[in-house]
Computed example of a mutant assay.
Amino acid sequence: MRPILLYDGDCGFCTASARFIERHIPTKARMSPYQSADLAALGTTAERASGEVLWAEPGRVRGGAQAIASLLIDAGGLWRPLGLLIRVPPVRWIAAGVYHLVTVNRFRLPGGTPACGLPPSERPGAGGPAG
């Protein structure tokens, strides 16, 4: 099974980031919005996938900055050392902090929409309070 990078397909910033990866980072991974993936078969949940990008491969799911590290390692070449660096403390901790800042502000970033800042259950069309 090829690794899968799961992202929030309802978020413009996340979708634009996935398209950037497809164009510029030579990974074997398949990009997939978590909303259209079989999350149970991948060993994760919608709750987790809605809060962070996930790297899913047989027997392991990594999230957040560590998912990005896995992607870069998989890409090889000059990307690999960067991915390996992200796994080592204190860079690991810094990467986690930067990743957190991005996730809580993604609706403010290029491609982001106000819906990116809402919990998944409240996004338009979700059938929650705002949908």
Rank of each mutant, 00 (worst) to 15 (best):
R23A: 13
Y99L: 13
L78I: 05
Y34N: 11
H24Y: 01
P58Y: 01
S32I: 00
E22P: 15
I21R: 00
G76Q: 05
M31N: 10
I4L: 14
S17M: 15
P110T: 06
R87V: 01
Q35E: 11
G63N: 01
L72R: 03
A126G: 14
K28G: 12
G128K: 02
P120H: 11
G111I: 01
A29I: 08
A115E: 14
G128R: 02
T15V: 07
E47M: 08
G12M: 05
H24G: 03
S70K: 02
S70P: 07
L72C: 07
L6P: 15
S121Y: 06
S50Q: 11
G127I: 10
A96M: 07
A56C: 11
Y34L: 10
W79K: 00
A95R: 12
P110Y: 04
A65N: 08
G131F: 09
S121N: 13
R108Y: 03
H100S: 15
T27E: 12
L78D: 03
T113A: 13
P89R: 15
L101V: 15
V104E: 14
A65C: 05
E47H: 09
D10I: 04
I25S: 09
S50D: 13
W55M: 04
T103N: 05
R19Y: 14
W93C: 03
Y99Q: 15
L5T: 07
W93T: 04
Q35A: 01
L78T: 01
R92E: 06
Q66Y: 10
P89C: 13
